[in-house]
Design a protein around this nucleic acid. Structure first.
Lengths: 137, 137
DNA sequence: ATTGTTGCAAAGGGTTTGCACGTAA
DNA sequence: TTACGTGCAAACCCTTTGCAACAAT
């Protein structure tokens, strides 16, 4: 019952992974902690943090470190970008091709060797757009 | 001696702004605190934080909140992107046009109203590339 | 035996905030 | 005489870490 040479697949780790993969809400560590506690009531927050880091290191989940202080995690590991609501903080997915970005950046006269990029969009989600209209009336 | 209806331009505020505009190193709040302390030795870190927030609100400086936990500030407010060294953490500038990004994102089948984006590149700076070579030999 | 994992609680780092005092309009 | 700004220190939030016990190879 191993992930690889370095890590074992423990029950805690398995449940954390399953809970993340169940949702598309890009939960925070604490939200995941709450989800997992329903199945393992005495799990500790430290264990959740440790395992999120390990699952990310093993490529089994994504870690979103954009913008806000609080990290979010994503069980869908295919490449995609995210958009965050400036009002309620909700994070959504965005499917778009920006493979040309890296090439373009490499030409931009910096002496860095460019390896990766982080991109997030900001906007107002559908629900908050409605709220705004309601407020105005 | 006012910035606008809401804020005055105090000596602390003025010195903080000047020090940021002097450099192109994208300093952190604490680095700015050290720079300003040479001119106002008894200034407090809290004042630096408060004023960085206000200067940003007034559009006089940029606030970089990408990736890492620590915020960085930039006295050059023309639009440009940044690249961060994955080894030493140094932040550099990048001049490239990605105005098409927002349009492209708007078409990507999300129900958000897209208003802004944050983009940063990651790589290895020139100095760290040299260090790596030295290490290998 | 050795290496990895856990729960717990404490510490950590960067940032924000309450307060009483000071200062400009 | 009101609204804004300051220094100081404590609080804050999220995250990491030290530790002793436990579990798997």
């Amino acid at each position: 019952v191993k992930i690889n040479e370095k890590y074992r697949m423990t029950n805690q780790r398995q449940v954390i992974l399953e809970e993340i993969q169940k949702v598309r809400t890009h939960p925070t560590a604490d939200e995941i902690y709450q989800m997992v506690r329903r199945r393992i009531p005495n799990i500790s927050l430290g264990t959740v943090y440790r395992n999120l880091e390990i699952l990310h290191e093993c490529g089994l989940i994504k870690k979103l470190e954009l913008g806000r202080s609080q990290k979010r995690f994503d069980g869908y590991i295919d490449e995609h970008y995210h958009i965050r609501c400036m009002q309620c903080g909700k994070v959504g997915d965005l499917a778009m091709d920006v493979s040309h970005l890296l090439d373009q950046a490499s030409m931009s006269g910096s002496d860095f060797k460019i390896l990766d990029h982080r991109l997030e969009f900001l906007g107002i989600c559908a629900e908050c757009q409605l709220k705004k209209v309601e407020k105005t009336h």
